[in-house]
């Protein structure tokens, strides 16, 4: 039992990373019906920016918690700008063309980011600095261990979720985002600037992916230019699992996928881990294509 709970805690850490990335997939899909396959690579860029910021700031002698916060902020800000730029240059010109054209462009942008990364940073993995000193805590005197990193990850994820929830529910931009994703034309008739609203969506999604990148670096201590591929695909699975377009769906889908994967590994099937994630995708697509929180999509006739 304790072993199971231990793995559940580990699973939640992995799941938090998937959930943060999945939010970007789901928000962008909600607003322009595009599966942004470059999103996993924005996560990678965010991770590298986090790495360099953390190194620089730690050398400057700042206390660890400040280093963590500043690295997160820097990484999220630059990645948000990257997200806006990608949308403006690659997707906006295609907004009136077929969805498949935009999808293929997204795959192109993904390769562009990956191999620009390889060109500049080299293909080999780099060590992510230990921002916080790693401590182990025992839960309620049992043998269940919780790392300080895992607590930081959970806290960061919860805070970001709350901020996101606040933005989407209560701010003008958030309401505009919901309006545009529901009915673009009606939103325009309210005087909503659709272009700016789409930019905001990309900015928020990319910033969340960057936060996931920093958290990933802190957890696995190793980052490389192709690191975004697998987590990107997994987060896509998580978004579909939760119901693409649904924000709570992305959160639940991410956490669920993370825990299922970790439990499978812990049962001794670690080589099956990735296979299980995609088996989950296939099963959802067969039995509940709209996902856990998704609405049934009615095609307009």
């Amino acid at each position: 039992m304790e072993y199971f709970i231990q793995q559940l805690i580990n699973g939640i850490s992995v799941g938090s990373i998937y959930a943060l990335i999945a939010l970007g997939y789901t928000m962008v899909y909600g607003i322009i019906k595009l599966i942004n396959f470059a999103h996993g690579d924005v996560f990678m860029v965010g991770s590298f920016i986090g790495l360099y910021s953390a190194k620089y700031l730690a050398n400057a002698g700042l206390p660890p918690i400040v280093v963590l916060l500043l690295s997160l902020i820097i990484s999220m800000t630059i990645s948000a700008l990257l997200g806006i730029t990608i949308e403006r240059l690659a997707y906006k010109p295609l907004r009136k063309s077929t969805r498949i054209a935009a999808l293929i462009t997204a795959i192109g942008v993904s390769f562009l980011l990956e191999y620009t990364g390889v060109l500049i940073l080299g293909p080999q993995a780099q060590g992510f600095p230990d921002i916080m000193e790693k401590k182990q805590y025992h839960l309620f005197g049992s043998s269940i261990q919780v790392e300080s990193n895992q607590i930081m990850i959970l806290l960061t994820t919860i805070i970001l979720m709350l901020v996101l929830q606040y933005i989407v529910r209560y701010t003008k931009t958030g309401k505009a985002m919901r309006a545009v994703s529901f009915d673009v034309e009606a939103a325009r008739l309210m005087g909503i600037n659709v272009d700016r609203t789409i930019s905001a969506t990309f900015a928020i999604g990319s910033a969340l992916a960057a936060a996931a990148g920093v958290i990933f670096g802190m957890t696995y201590n190793s980052v490389d230019p192709l690191m975004g591929v697998m987590p990107g695909l997994k987060a896509f699975v998580a978004a579909v699992l939760g119901g693409i377009g649904s924000i709570p769906g992305a959160l639940v889908g991410g956490l669920l996928l993370g825990t299922v994967e970790t439990e499978i590994s812990s049962l001794g099937f670690s080589s099956w881990r990735d296979g299980v994630a995609f088996a989950v995708l296939i099963l959802i697509l067969i039995f509940k294509p709209s996902g856990l929180f998704g609405k049934n999509v009615r095609e307009k006739v």
Partner: peptide, 24 residues
């Protein structure tokens, strides 16, 4: 322009719909 078929934002509350009308 109040469009044909009402086109209210069905996923939002009455109050939020009105607020969007005052977006500018």
């Amino acid at each position: 322009h109040c469009p044909e078929g009402r086109r209210v934002f069905a996923n939002m509350s009455v109050e939020e719909n009105l607020e969007l009308g005052a977006y500018l």
